[in-house]
Each structure stands twice: as structure tokens, then as C-alpha cells.
């Protein structure tokens, strides 16, 4: 769908979003017990409709934007259809059990009702994740470089790491609580640990896979060992280091729940657990949504970094 010409299907997502609003307004809610006065879903979808209309109009005038937006039209359209379907299955017909699958409107209502608590949770979790990802990522790259570069380190240390790495996070909780002075540092350790392992594995294997010829060339040009590590080993292994960071970040989001089980006062993971226990599924779903968005933006940041550092790869590999 890479096309330079304007196409009418640019308006399809907007149309589908408007369709959601229409259905939501016309068909009455089937689940009277859980009904909420304010139609949040209609409001949100109305805003999304307007955004999509603006996007579609932009494709009329801006060629670069057209190339960017048109390939995504299919996905956005499907997404809108899915939301519509979910709304019909839950709020409009109650075909799905409404305790576990509450109406979308109720889920959105949580974001308004519980906003202060949720904001605190997001801030707390963000701090934990940020520290965990930074420390874990840095430790992963550092240990990965040492293991990948020095055969001796690889021989003695890697088997130990390979044993430690895949151990379930739950095992670490008592150790972390004993070894670290504060709850925060213990939680950061748990998140950092799950960030560290994939980063370390990918970094070390990336460094071991660098062509020997590069080092031969560098050595005949008088490059020191440190210079070779910084200017050859690491840049050459960078594509694989990014793969490690990517899977590390994904695992650390999963570990977040565990880390926040150790007596936190706030945090998205903690919130999900708490709400699950009191069977408040609209809140659980909202928290899941926030967690997914948080993960999405962190990964988006990582991809931006990758684009900056690995632009040389364009033309060698398929992105």
C-alpha cells in the first residue's frame, strides 16, 4: 500500500470510529446494573474520530505524511472494528460475562474516578522500571562485553550466569529483601535482574560473532585492546545488543508485578493485584491498558535510539 497518490480509504478509520459512536448512542445498554451516566466511550471515540479525520485530510495535502499514514489504514480500521465488536459483546448485549469483561465505558470510567491513585501508581512504577532498566541494561552490556571478549571470563562466569538467569523471579524476592536496605532498592534489583539476563546473553553472543578480520585490521593499525572493544566490538555487536535490550524491557514489565508484590504502597502491578482480589475488573482492565501503553512508549523510545545508532543498517537488513 505504499502509494504516492491520495486514496479515499484514508477516511476509513475515521468512518469506523464514528460508527462506534453511532452504535454506542443508538443501542441502549443491556447491563443496567453496571450502567454509568456519562458515556465516556462515545466521548473518547468522538475525539479519535476527529483525529482520524484530521489525519485523512493531511494525506490530501502532504505527500510525506500520506506515505506514512496510508499503510497503517488497514490496521487502524481493524482496531476500530475490534473496539466496536467488544462494545457490542459487553455493554450492548452482555454476551460476555460482565464481571470479567466489563463494558468498555466502565473501564474508561475508572480512569476518571480513580485518576489520582492511577497517576501515583504510574509514577511509582515508572520510577521503578526506569531505574531497573537503566541498571539492568548497563550491567547487561558490561557483563556481556566482558564475557564476549575475554575467554577466561566466559569460561568461569558464563555457566554461573546461565544458571542464575532463567531462575523465576519469585525465588529472588526473599534474597532481595534481605540483601537490600530499602524496599525500592530491592524492587529495582528484581526488575534489573530480569532486564540484565537477556541483555547480557545477546551482548556476549553479539561480541563473539564479530568477524575476526576486523580485529586483524585494527591491530595492524595500532589500535589498543580498549580501542578495539569500544570502536569495533561494541558497534559491530550493537544490532544484537538492541535485541537483548528489547527482550529485557519486555521481561522487566512482566517482572514489575512481582517486584510490586513485596509490600509496595503504589504501582500499577500492585494495583492490578489489589483490584483483582476485590474482583473489580474494570479497574484491572484499565491498569492493564495503562501498563501496555507504558510498555509501548518505552519500546518506542528504544526504537528511536536504534534508528539513531543503527541507521547504517538500512539497506543491509529488512527493518
Amino acid at each position: 500500500m505504499k502509494t504516492g497518490k491520495f486514496e479515499l480509504i484514508a477516511f476509513l478509520p475515521a468512518l469506523m470510529a464514528a460508527f462506534i459512536v453511532l452504535i454506542d448512542r443508538v443501542i441502549p445498554s443491556a447491563s443496567r446494573a453496571m450502567n454509568i451516566e456519562i458515556p465516556y466511550l462515545s466521548y473518547v471515540m468522538a475525539v479519535i474520530t476527529v483525529v482520524f479525520v484530521i489525519c485523512a485530510i493531511l494525506t490530501l495535502f502532504n505527500r510525506d505524511y500520506r506515505i506514512k499514514f496510508l499503510p497503517k489504514v488497514k490496521f487502524y480500521t481493524a482496531l476500530m472494528l475490534l473496539i466496536n465488536l467488544l462494545n457490542i459483546l459487553t455493554d450492548k448485549t452482555s454476551l460476555l460475562k460482565s464481571i470479567y469483561f466489563p463494558p468498555l465505558n466502565n473501564v474508561l470510567a475508572v480512569a476518571v474516578k480513580d485518576r489520582e491513585m492511577l497517576l501515583n501508581c504510574v509514577l511509582y512504577s515508572s520510577r521503578l522500571l526506569l531505574l531497573g532498566i537503566l541498571f539492568g541494561g548497563a550491567a547487561g552490556i558490561l557483563t556481556g562485553v566482558l564475557i564476549g571478549w575475554y575467554k577466561e571470563v566466559n569460561y568461569w562466569v558464563f555457566p554461573v550466569f546461565r544458571f542464575i538467569g532463567p531462575m523465576p523471579t519469585a525465588i529472588w524476592i526473599p534474597i532481595a529483601l534481605l540483601a537490600f536496605p530499602t524496599l525500592l532498592s530491592a524492587s529495582v534489583f528484581i526488575v534489573a535482574l530480569s532486564m540484565w539476563f537477556p541483555t547480557m546473553v545477546q551482548t556476549s553472543s553479539g561480541i563473539q560473532n564479530v568477524s575476526k578480520g576486523y580485529y586483524d585490521v585494527a591491530r595492524t593499525m595500532g589500535a589498543s585492546t580498549l580501542y578495539q572493544i569500544i570502536h569495533i566490538a561494541i558497534p559491530a555487536a550493537l544490532p544484537q545488543i538492541f535485541v537483548g535490550l528489547f527482550s529485557g524491557i519486555t521481561t522487566s514489565f512482566i517482572t514489575l508485578m512481582m517486584a510490586e508484590l513485596m509490600g509496595s504502597k503504589y504501582g500499577i502491578g500492585w494495583y492490578i493485584n489489589w483490584q483483582q482480589q476485590i474482583m473489580s475488573y474494570p479497574n484491572v482492565w484499565m491498569a492493564f491498558l495503562i501498563l501496555a501503553l507504558l510498555c509501548f512508549f518505552v519500546l518506542k523510545g528504544l526504537f528511536a535510539l536504534r534508528k539513531k545508532f543503527l541507521s547504517w543498517q538500512e539497506g543491509i537488513i529488512r527493518w
Binding site: V217, R219, G222, I232, I316
Partner: peptide, 20 residues
């Protein structure tokens, strides 16, 4: 050991592909 007064060129150019 190796040194810059002895330049080496292989069959495979071994250019650092992340550098222009």
C-alpha cells in the same frame, strides 16, 4: 607484533560496516 608500519589488505575488504 602487529604495527602500523606494516599495512595489511585482505581479499575480503573487511571495511567496518557501521562507519562511512
Amino acid at each position: 607484533g602487529p604495527g602500523p608500519e606494516r599495512g595489511l589488505v585482505f581479499q575480503d575488504p573487511e571495511l567496518f560496516q557501521w562507519m562511512d
